[in-house]
Design a protein around this nucleic acid. Sequence first.
DNA 1: TTATCTTCTTAACATTTATCAATGGAAAGT
DNA 2: ACTTTCCATTGATAAATGTTAAGAAGATAA
Lengths: 194, 194
Amino acid sequence: MGNMFEAIHGYYLNLVPHLSVTDLEALDACLSVRQVPKGEFIVKAGQVCQYVSFLNKGLARLYYTFEGKDISIGFVVPGQYTSEYESFLTRRPAAQSIDALTDLEVIDLGYNDMQRLYKTFPVFQEFGRKIAEMLFIYLNQRNTALLALTPEDRYRHMIADQPALLQQVPQYMLASFMGVTPEHLSRIRKKISR
Amino acid sequence: MGNMFEAIHGYYLNLVPHLSVTDLEALDACLSVRQVPKGEFIVKAGQVCQYVSFLNKGLARLYYTFEGKDISIGFVVPGQYTSEYESFLTRRPAAQSIDALTDLEVIDLGYNDMQRLYKTFPVFQEFGRKIAEMLFIYLNQRNTALLALTPEDRYRHMIADQPALLQQVPQYMLASFMGVTPEHLSRIRKKISR
DNA sequence: TTATCTTCTTAACATTTATCAATGGAAAGT
DNA sequence: ACTTTCCATTGATAAATGTTAAGAAGATAA
């Protein structure tokens, strides 16, 4: 039979090409598949995040709640890793939640297993480093956009960079992601469509 | 004579306690001290960032220029590393600059030396991973603050978290760091002082 | 010292964005 | 099919923030 983790192997090899078969087998022993129904959580705020989760199928959202309002931080599509990484790293309760906008299938890698991989197969340190570096670059660019661009410009960038996401994510979630109210996003859209 | 790099050794050992004497000697061979006069640059936008730089003395600012205006991203005090890390990692021209708000002394570690350390002494992979993880956590929190808090609340947080910085950094730089105009920051300060 | 330059503050006014309220339409449940 | 809920849109109004301009306070240089 084929290996259930082919997609995830590709992901790892893409980041660290010199991973050996032995390395990947050690990885496989740590992975487990989980089904998350729509509306349920991959991670819930208040709990310590136990996994980094590779998204096989579905659409997930990273967000937090502040003064009664949900603020979306990011959206996850298949082929990407997601986690409340700060909680995962620090072992403190998560400030952010990750929920399922559709039914999901994820492949979990647990904290203790990951530490063991780091120790036993140091080549995974390089993997962890590159993941964190990618996250840094993503946040750095997002930060820059939030400070320098107007909401309208941020929306234009999203149209250019993530057109598929705009179709899949409700607009009130996009609005908080862009830092405006749903009403204001609606006006921006009206203005742009002319 | 004492080792010129004592402070930086402490920094490394704090992140990766099991670094050996051999590891640190290999590191020392890669480090070089640089003096940066006030107003000059550690990294200049448009050039590829060649170093991660440990700040020994002085105060530095990370910022970029957009539509003629400088927007500050962060400030660096002694004992911290700084770099235009996205450029350093990707080998593409830097979008951001780092300049000296006072005379500086930095300890540089070059890109090629760092890659060689990663390869020859894999234990440094762990160091690189933890640096990137720290950067991620910092940016994640800053991002959250930018989206969830009002400028006034962000300023209150700065008073609580970084009181020393408020004394050292001109207010018009703080203003862009907080995402408001200098005039508006002045109004916020007036309101709070009552 | 005086002069110059920079930074900070203040005020009036303009623009952007949020809030509140109402409506219509789409989706989901029964 | 009917009902209910949720979501997107729109308008009126309010609040927050930016812009422009001027002057005060502080630093730097001659």
